[in-house]
Nucleic acid binder design. Sequence first.
DNA 1: TTTGTAACTGGAAATCTTTTTCATCTTTTA
DNA 2: TAAAAGATGAAAAAGATTTCCAGTTACAAA
Lengths: 146, 146
Amino acid sequence: MKKISSYKPWVETLKAFGVRLTLPRKTVLQVLADNREGLTPEEVCRLGRASHPGLGLVTVYRALELFEKLGMIRRVHSGGHCQSYSASFGDTHFVVCTRCGRVTEFPCCGLLPLFAHVRARTGYEVTGHILEITGLCPDCVKSGEN
Amino acid sequence: MKKISSYKPWVETLKAFGVRLTLPRKTVLQVLADNREGLTPEEVCRLGRASHPGLGLVTVYRALELFEKLGMIRRVHSGGHCQSYSASFGDTHFVVCTRCGRVTEFPCCGLLPLFAHVRARTGYEVTGHILEITGLCPDCVKSGEN
DNA sequence: TTTGTAACTGGAAATCTTTTTCATCTTTTA
DNA sequence: TAAAAGATGAAAAAGATTTCCAGTTACAAA
């Protein structure tokens, strides 16, 4: 798993919403930028303390809630528990590796016909959806079974 | 919300897996058969006590876990928390009403092209997925805004 | 039927997980 | 730079889930 970018691209978003850029928030953002698995609040806190030892779990909860509301991160449901978060850029969905937990985004596409089908079939007016695909990432496919 | 069937269709499944048909389990099944919303363990327990006052919450947790493993019920992720369950018959997905919580199944269909797309784009070998659609059920569409 | 036994149950207590509270500290803007 | 609004983190409270364990029960075999 490689470290990706910094959290810099997110800074604009935060400024646009008039959200303060504090040390704990920067720390949480950096952790999320550095990791490509879904992380629980607990995990974010533990990882974050490497660079900011005073980081509080409550603050992590609040930061994650805020970033989710701003669309910078999203909840990952696959893999048993639903309280993990992963960075998200734009209108995408996740593929989650069932072996190593790696999360990869892919553009949201081609669901409109399905929504029409659902509407016709059930009478519901569709307003949203959760779509998450699970599978094996390229590395895990290469390195063995399951 | 209308009461649907009994839990009878499930009895075969349970027998096939060599699972005992006990009073608490029957109670949980009846609750799930009677309700078309996602129910939390707590709610199942409360509703179940109407017919079986001694029903224990721990037993409800165990029963839900078992039934989920046997594919008789599935977790509902929409609506904030992910610890609700709803009856499920066959290879389907859920549409969840964001207003009244009603859950309706629709056949799983038309996702194969998407899986191919994901594979081509991300290199993941697709093995599963979570798809849940949210919207307004016909009754809620009729009865007002929101 | 009756009976033996493995499977199941439910209360209490132990473990998490998440939220609330509140006194203190930090950004930001004026 | 100072004031004010916003943010932080420790502790405590509230919730959710699991573990333990002493009974109880469904079911198969006699």
